[in-house]
Amino acid sequence: MNQLQGAPWLVAHRSMLKPNQPMRISLLGNDYVLWQDSQGAINALSNACPHMGAMLSEGWCVEKPDGNSTVACPFHALEFDRAGCTLLPSSNKPTKSLLQPLELIIQGDFVWTYGGHEPKLSIPGIMNEIASEYEFIGVTGNRSIPTDILSLLLNMHDYNHQNGTHRELFEIEEVQVKQFIDEGLHSHAYLSQPRKQPTLRDILRNPGQLAMPQVLEAHLENFFPFMGLLHAENKLLSLKECHFYLPETEHQSRVFVLMYMKAHSPIAHLIKGNLLKLIDIVVEQDAKVLGKIYPDTEQRIKLNNEVGMDWVRRNFASFPAIAEPNLSRQWVA
């Protein structure tokens, strides 16, 4: 995959990695095995065993006396260290590196990588700031979706689809894009979304509704092409909903969401689990639609509020160059 090379990708949060349990990740057409040893060191190698191609992520980890660990092939139990070296049964000497390690950038609990390509964008510091100031609620919405990364990004920056894809979940009656600030590969969108008043039955079925006011005022901060943040404030809590996007293959993408909050009321702590479930449903609804579209369809209709989608298309076409915005730098409805 040649598109979007040089962008930073958040492949995992440390909470997603159980000690000494290998995990498969895919990025830009390549598969890797990712694991964390008992000392907290995180490693990644190409996932295909150089003997007969077995997936190392289907194997296991072997902990060593110094706390480091190797990953063992499920086919013949060959062990590979973090450098991709192994000991053959007939020798006590390690081989040269037979598997290419994936270079990782570990920032606290965040596992970033450029996928082996020359960096073209820097990793923004905002996630470190959020992690230092807000309570981590958890990871949700983690799934691969059978769609290309452009279709995924267009969906995530489509400010109209709440009325369709998420109609029953939020019962939003109207979407108003009040302001869009275009800063090249970085943008801010401010939305106002009046919703139908939930009934008592709606609240009992989904207590997370208590965290949603009659009018959803949303501030969306976007970092092309890898991250989108929802900044939300209400009387119960301050919420940071952090969406991450990854191009796994040409026709498959991955998304997951990290949730952080500051509680302004004890009720906020009671609904943390409901918030995670709510966002998981949102991602599942998006995945269902994205898995059933014709991505090459010519767009012959244009709706209001497509400013975010225009921003995606422009940046996708020009990446990694920062094109002169064809939107005003500070567009106000």
Rank of each mutant, 00 (worst) to 15 (best):
I25L: 08
P8G: 02
M16W: 03
L236K: 04
V312Y: 05
F256K: 04
P22N: 03
Q299P: 09
N222C: 13
T70V: 09
E168M: 15
T140Q: 04
S265V: 06
K196Q: 14
I279E: 09
G138N: 05
L78P: 00
R300N: 13
S318W: 10
M212Y: 11
S132L: 03
P89T: 03
C61V: 04
P146H: 13
P194W: 11
G40Q: 04
A48D: 08
P247I: 06
D286A: 09
P89D: 03
E241R: 09
N43I: 03
G208N: 15
E241H: 09
L150T: 10
H243F: 14
P295G: 10
N2P: 06
Q107V: 02
D37P: 00
G53K: 09
W60D: 08
M127G: 05
S328F: 09
R82L: 11
R329Y: 06
K64R: 15
L152R: 05
G59F: 04
N47A: 10
T113L: 04
P325D: 06
L17E: 01
M1G: 08
P320A: 03
R300C: 08
V62Q: 12
K196S: 13
E248S: 10
S46G: 10
D286K: 08
E174T: 13
M309E: 14
R254W: 04
Q3T: 12
R314E: 14
E129T: 07
I149R: 00
T113Y: 04
Q162V: 14
Q107P: 01
V332M: 07
G40F: 02
H76D: 10
W9L: 03
G40P: 01
L169W: 13
Q39A: 07
A232T: 13
S46D: 08
G29C: 10
Q179C: 07
S132C: 00
E118Y: 06
D148M: 08
G40L: 03
E174Q: 14
E221H: 14
H231T: 14
S144F: 02
V175C: 07
S187F: 08
F75E: 05
H219Y: 08
K288P: 08
L102T: 02
H264N: 07
H161P: 10
H251T: 15
N128P: 00
L220G: 11
S132M: 03
P295N: 13
E58T: 12
H117M: 13
V62H: 10
D296G: 06
I137E: 00
E63K: 01
H188E: 13
D109G: 01
E168D: 15
